[in-house]
């Protein structure tokens, strides 16, 4: 298993290199001259030239790439024009909020989507199955921002059950940052009040973010379970006297989930991308809202850094998915 994990990690190296080339090219093909942008609106050509030399934009492209690579390896992604701080520090501060949001959204999507999909497959072509299909098509089609605003109108404005925006109430002292995940840190500090506050703040953004994921998890769980139900071992299990509930919820589901882990992993990446919109609506202090601000202010170092970080997260999630896959299906670990 150790060797398997190591090998998977080696496979990631080419993808990361590709990602670096891509971000670097994105930097170079930006429509406006980065030197001009850096020098400011009223800069003279001489000042722009000075900036160009200072940032190394006059160097050959491969040299620039080498410099870029070196900076990335040293976790130096430059300074944000907006915050005036290193973008790495900005992201380190904001990434945990996004991770927390995305993880909770995915957890909710799986906890709801897997049973719903399973039941739809078991009651194939029943009223429940058809209803599920209509609702999930809706779930995939509904725009997140629309759903988010409806949630805000109902649960914050009208009912006043949930906080409208943010990650924690103003004036609520934050727990000592250990993991920077508020739910975890507040529990570690034993401060249930903070935990409850953070959880209430999390409900609407996580629900919004999970919507599309829930729909697709339900759909591919349904497809997976339908497929598994046709397998000989299901017929055998029944003939051998297994309980029906055990056949469905243990033996069939386990086989279906093996295939589903890949999809859930991909979803994690997709959710981080969708978080951009959701975080802006709920004013969630994650890298999504950071990216939106960076785009609006042409803060290209920040944009590139966010792209890079999301790419790395994708790669990590892929490794985790492969490991989970191997743990769930013994044949996978042996074939690799």
């Amino acid at each position: 298993m150790g060797r398997f994990i190591l090998r998977r990690m080696l496979f990631v190296v080419p993808s990361l290199l590709g990602l670096l080339v891509l971000t670097f090219v994105m930097l170079r093909v930006l429509p406006n001259d980065p030197s001009a942008a850096l020098a400011g609106e009223n800069a003279t050509p001489a000042q722009i030239a000075a900036v160009r030399t200072a940032y190394g934009f006059d160097q050959p492209i491969w040299k620039q790439f080498a410099v870029y690579l070196k900076q990335v390896v040293h976790a130096d992604l430059g300074t944000s024009i907006v915050t005036g701080r290193p973008v790495v520090a900005d992201i380190a501060l904001r990434l945990p909020a996004t991770i927390e949001l995305t993880f909770c959204a995915l957890l909710f999507a799986s906890a709801m989507g897997i049973p719903i999909g399973t039941l739809a497959a078991v009651w194939h072509n029943s009223v429940f199955d058809h209803a599920m299909r209509i609702v999930t098509v809706g779930g995939l089609a509904i725009a997140a921002f629309w759903f988010a605003i409806i949630l805000q109108l109902v649960f914050s404005m009208s009912l006043d059950w949930l906080p409208l925006r943010g990650r924690i109430s103003v004036g609520m002292p934050e727990p000592a940052p250990v993991t920077r995940l508020l739910l975890v840190d507040s529990l570690l500090a034993g401060r249930l009040g903070v935990f409850r506050d953070a959880l209430l703040h999390l409900v609407m953004p996580a629900l919004t973010l999970s919507l599309g994921g829930l729909a697709s998890i339900a759909r591919f769980t349904r497809a997976g379970v339908l497929d598994t139900l046709q397998k000989d071992f299901v017929g055998y299990a029944e003939a051998a006297g297994y309980r029906r509930s055990r056949i469905i919820w243990v033996y069939v589901l386990r086989n279906s989930v093996v295939a589903a882990t890949t999809q859930i992993g991909l979803l994690f990446g997709a959710l981080i991308s969708s978080a951009v919109a959701v975080e802006s609506i709920f004013d969630w202090p994650g890298i999504g809202s950071y990216a939106v601000k960076a785009i609006l202010t042409s803060d290209y170092k920040a944009i590139l850094a966010v792209t890079l970080v999301v790419g790395v997260i994708y790669a990590i999630v892929n490794i985790v998915v492969d490991i989970v896959h191997a743990l769930l299906d013994p044949r996978v670990a042996e074939s690799l």
Partner: peptide, 20 residues
């Protein structure tokens, strides 16, 4: 099933669940 009457299936390659 399984209690009064045991069952031996046709295809041993397909009858066992591969992930248990």
């Amino acid at each position: 099933r399984g209690r009064a009457i045991g069952f031996i299936p046709q295809d041993p390659f397909q009858a066992l669940n591969p992930v248990f």
